[in-house]
Structures are given as structure tokens and as C-alpha cells.
Amino acid sequence: MSPRYVHKLFERDATTFSAFVLTCRLWRALQMLKNARFATMTINAIAFECGFNDLSYFNRTFRRAYNATPSDIRDAALRARL
């Protein structure tokens, strides 16, 4: 499979490979923040585990995607478990 072919596949969905990867990483971080198994991990550690190398970029893109900060999501999940 050529890079151009992959590019065309994403083009049909009006997205890019980079946008797809970002969406997957953000979704994984969201799931980890909601999951009690990861409650002891810092948000920074979760961001790095999901492939982000810059915490500021992670926080900015997360907030844009979910209209909430990672801390907000974690706090809401904690309250729901109580």
C-alpha cells in the first residue's frame, strides 16, 4: 500500500492521517482518565502514554475535542464512582 493510496483513503473522509491519529490518541486518553485502573497515573503520564510529547499541546487539543479539561473528566469520573 503506497502512502498516496492511504492519503486518498483519508481524503475521501475529509480528514488526514494526522487528524485520525490525534483523534485516536485523544480518545484513548479520555478512556484512561475515566477508568479507575489509571486513577493513580498523573495526567502527564497518561498524555505521554497516549503518544503526546508536549503537555500543553495535549491539554489544548483535549479541551478543544471534549470541551473539558483532562482534570474535569477525571474529577467527574471520580464523583460518578462515589
Rank of each mutant, 00 (worst) to 15 (best):
V21K: 10
V21I: 15
V21T: 13
V21Y: 01
V21C: 14
V21S: 11
V21D: 12
L22A: 10
L22E: 12
L22I: 13
T23E: 13
T23Q: 12
T23R: 13
C24F: 08
C24D: 07
C24G: 10
C24I: 06
C24V: 11
R25P: 01
R25K: 12
R25G: 02
L26D: 05
W27C: 06
W27R: 07
W27F: 08
W27L: 06
R28D: 01
R28T: 04
A29S: 03
L30S: 00
L30N: 04
L30G: 08
L30V: 04
L30M: 04
Q31G: 04
Q31H: 11
M32W: 07
M32C: 02
M32N: 00
M32G: 01
L33H: 10
L33R: 02
K34V: 03
K34W: 03
K34N: 12
K34L: 06
K34Y: 06
K34T: 06
K34M: 11
K34R: 15
K34F: 08
N35L: 07
N35M: 05
N35I: 01
N35H: 12
A36M: 08
A36I: 11
A36C: 06
A36R: 12
A36H: 07
A36F: 10
R37K: 14
R37D: 15
R37Q: 13
R37F: 12
F38E: 01
F38M: 03
F38G: 03
F38R: 03
A39P: 08
T40K: 10
T40Y: 10
T40M: 08
T40I: 05
T40R: 11
T40W: 10
T40D: 14
T40S: 13
M41W: 00
M41T: 10
M41N: 09
T42P: 03
T42H: 07
T42G: 08
I43F: 00
I43T: 10
I43Q: 03
I43N: 07
I43K: 01
N44C: 14
N44H: 15
N44I: 14
N44P: 07
A45L: 07
A45W: 04
A45K: 04
A45S: 07
A45E: 00
I46C: 04
I46H: 02
A47S: 11
A47N: 06
A47P: 06
A47V: 09
F48W: 08
F48P: 09
E49K: 08
E49M: 05
E49G: 04
C50Q: 06
C50S: 02
C50A: 06
C50I: 04
C50E: 02
G51D: 02
G51L: 05
G51Q: 00
G51I: 00
G51S: 08
F52M: 10
F52G: 02
F52H: 04
D54L: 11
D54N: 14
D54G: 09
D54V: 08
L55I: 15
L55N: 08
L55E: 10
L55A: 11
L55K: 10
S56F: 01
S56I: 07
S56G: 10
Y57T: 15
Y57S: 15
Y57H: 15
Y57W: 15
F58C: 00
F58P: 01
F58K: 09
F58T: 05
N59D: 12
N59V: 13
N59G: 12
R60W: 14
R60T: 14
R60F: 13
R60Q: 15
T61H: 00
